[in-house]
Simulated scan of single mutants.
Amino acid sequence: MSDAMDDVQIKRLFMLLHGMYGNSVLDKYRIGQVEDGEDVGMKSARQVWLNGLREFPQPVVLKALAKCSEKHKTFPPTLPEFRDICKSLMPRQWTASNEAPRLEMSEALRSEQVERARRAIAQTRLQREGGVQTADGIRGLHVLIAKAVGHAGGDEAATLLRLDAQRSAASA
Rank of each mutant, 00 (worst) to 15 (best):
N51P: 00
A66E: 09
G52N: 07
P80H: 15
I31N: 15
M105P: 10
E38I: 15
L103E: 07
S44D: 07
W49E: 01
Q47T: 05
E81G: 13
A96C: 08
I85G: 02
M15I: 07
L17I: 01
I121Y: 14
L79F: 06
S24M: 14
V60D: 06
D84G: 02
E70G: 03
G19N: 14
L126N: 06
F75W: 09
E129W: 12
Y29H: 04
S97M: 04
V48G: 07
I31F: 12
K63V: 01
G32R: 12
E129R: 14
R110Q: 09
H18A: 11
R119D: 09
E70W: 05
S106K: 08
V48W: 15
G52A: 13
V61H: 09
L53H: 02
M90R: 08
Q33G: 06
A120N: 15
L89Y: 04
L53E: 01
K11V: 06
G22Y: 06
L13H: 02
E129Q: 10
N51Y: 00
T74S: 15
P77F: 03
S106Q: 09
M90K: 05
K63R: 10
T95C: 00
A64I: 01
P77C: 02
C68F: 06
P101G: 04
L62R: 08
M90C: 08
Y29I: 04
R102K: 07
R102V: 13
L62D: 14
G19Q: 10
A64C: 06
R54S: 07
T74K: 13
P59K: 12
G37L: 11
M15A: 13
Q58T: 13
P59Y: 13
R102N: 10
F56S: 01
